[in-house]
Computed example of a mutant assay.
Amino acid sequence: MAKSIDYGNLMHNAMRGLIRQVLENVRKDGLPGDHHFFITFDTMHPDVELADWLSDRYPEEMTVVIQHWFDNLEVNEDSFSITLNFGDSPEPLFIPYDAIRTFVDPSVEFGLRFETQESDEDDDDDTEISDSAKITDADVSEFEPAKPSKTDVKKAPKEAEIVSLDQFRK
């Protein structure tokens, strides 16, 4: 019997499930309104699959933008795969939910951050969620979307406006 309830892991699993559900809805119906996502993930995670040139360019982590153009979005229980455009070069990506470090939808000021901290008592990583449903202006501004192709620029709506989250903080 466990000595305590592992709330950190329970939250971790619930929030990964939230991401899975959001991506499943996007797979079925497309992105509604101005919604778009910045997803930062660990490129060193053993199950991540991406082109060699991308892993060379982003040896630790990478932020992708799901917005104007994406293809082949497949959502699984433990991962998702998607094809994104990198400088007019479509590249498939396979991303386990466990590799995700941040998930941000700036159109509605929503963000999740997953932090891994090592415990002195265990050799295993304990995942903790810090300010899980809050993001700061600095968090949003650190995400730089990939440059859209010429076709995307013609169809692209105006840039997302970053607004202060101070009013939502306690």
Score class of each variant (00 low, 15 high):
Trp53Asn: 10
Asp137Trp: 00
Glu121Pro: 01
Lys28Glu: 09
Phe143Asn: 14
Val104Arg: 15
Ile135Gln: 04
Ser79Val: 01
Asp56Lys: 15
Asp152Arg: 09
Gln21Gly: 11
Asn76Trp: 12
Glu60Trp: 04
Leu84Tyr: 00
Thr151Leu: 06
Leu31Glu: 13
Tyr58Gln: 01
Leu18Asp: 09
Asp29Gly: 01
Ala138Gly: 07
Lys28Trp: 05
Pro148Trp: 07
Leu93Ala: 00
Val140Gly: 05
His12Asp: 11
Asp125Pro: 14
Asn13Glu: 05
Glu115Pro: 07
Asp98Gly: 07
Val75Ser: 01
Thr102Leu: 00
Phe86Ile: 12
Pro157Phe: 15
Ser132Cys: 09
Phe103Ile: 08
Pro46Lys: 09
Val22Gln: 02
Val108Met: 02
Gly33Glu: 04
Leu73Thr: 08
Asp152Ala: 14
Gly33Asn: 08
Asp6Lys: 11
Glu144Asp: 09
His45Gln: 13
Ile135Tyr: 05
Leu165Ile: 03
Pro92Tyr: 04
Phe38Gln: 05
Gln117Ile: 08
Lys170Gln: 12
Val26Tyr: 07
Phe80Arg: 02
Lys150His: 10
Leu10Ala: 15
Thr136Leu: 07
Asp47Cys: 02
His45Ile: 09
Phe80Met: 04
Ala51Asn: 06
Ser81Cys: 13
Gly111Lys: 11
Asp88Leu: 08
Ser81Ile: 06
Asn13Lys: 14
Ile100His: 05
Asn76Gly: 06
Asp137Glu: 12
Thr43Ala: 09
Leu23Gln: 04
Asp47Ser: 07
Glu60Lys: 12
Thr127Met: 10
Pro106His: 13
His45Lys: 09
Glu24Ile: 06
Glu121Met: 10
Met44Thr: 06
Arg27Ile: 06
Ser149Ala: 10
Asp122Val: 13
His45Gly: 06
Asp56Trp: 00
Ser141Glu: 15
Glu91Ala: 01
Asp152Trp: 03
Val64Ser: 00
Lys155Phe: 06
Ala14His: 08
